[in-house]
Amino acid sequence: MGKLTIPEQELMRPGHMGCLGCGGTLAMRLALKAAGPDTIISIPACCWAVMPGVWPNTCMGIPMLYTAFEVTGASISGIRAALDAKGKKDTNVIGWAGDGGTFDIGLQALSGMVERGTNALYICYDNEAYMNTGIQRSSSTPEGAWTTTTPVGTENYWEQGRKKDMISIMVAHGIPYAATANVAYPEDFVRKVQKALSIDGPTYLQIFAPCPTGWKSQPAKSIKLAKEAITSLAYPMYEVENGVYKINRKPKEQTPLKDYMLKQGRFRHLTEEFIEEQQKMLEANWKRLLKLEEITNEE
């Protein structure tokens, strides 16, 4: 054999502060491989605001701007504007935020960036809660999950809201390209990053990034868990280009949601009935995606 299926160059150095088995770290490593050195990245408050290292150290091999929590969209508009003023059209601009910084506090700035048509790629590494601050729920947290702000008590318990559908929100903006990705499929993610960066306009990627610390899962199982998120329909992998849907991975055989959930401490309290309800909801969503793919690919 002996063939590297993703770019060899390492622009993320070791010695960073990511937890064992961190999906968000792997996502960054892959994204930088895909983007290459002529890239500027803006990162708001999130795990990645801490993980590169304490001053003066950094694991980043590209220029990086740390920003406030809610500003990623505005920040990458600013970087792009300055590069345009300097005539540096080819430099890639990436905004890199967690789900809290994207789905919640940064949603307005992201919406503005997409609506303005900024030529930049926004990547959300989605670990489904505020992990950097210690596992508090976000609007990306799936229904049923334990977090420190949705504890399992006797009267009030676990996350009650449904996970926000960010891709649909992005598609509603008329974004040229939006996609979900998954750390278990590096080749697919690298391709999506490169495709997004080749588009002269705003693009959005959302990568499923297991968090063993927050999900109470085994670090070694991060990749297996990420694969199971696809086969159980918990986190479909698809892309939307100019409104046309394409599902990138259709499981040959659907695996039970229960198997996926019970590998994670954050779901361990759930009853079989509850998980069945969730599975029905995810199946309905999957059907909706299949339908969208069918409709949008019609001539």
């Binding site: 990458i76 508009s77 600013g78 970087i79 300055a82 307005q108 700035a109 503005g112």
Partner: peptide, 24 residues
């Protein structure tokens, strides 16, 4: 000039900060 019409004053300052950090 690059005139970035943002969706809030918070973003206006954020945009200026990031552009200024890019050296302009």
């Amino acid at each position: 000039t690059q005139y970035v019409k943002v969706e809030s004053e918070h973003s206006a300052m954020s945009c200026c900060i990031s552009a200024s950090n890019t050296g302009v």
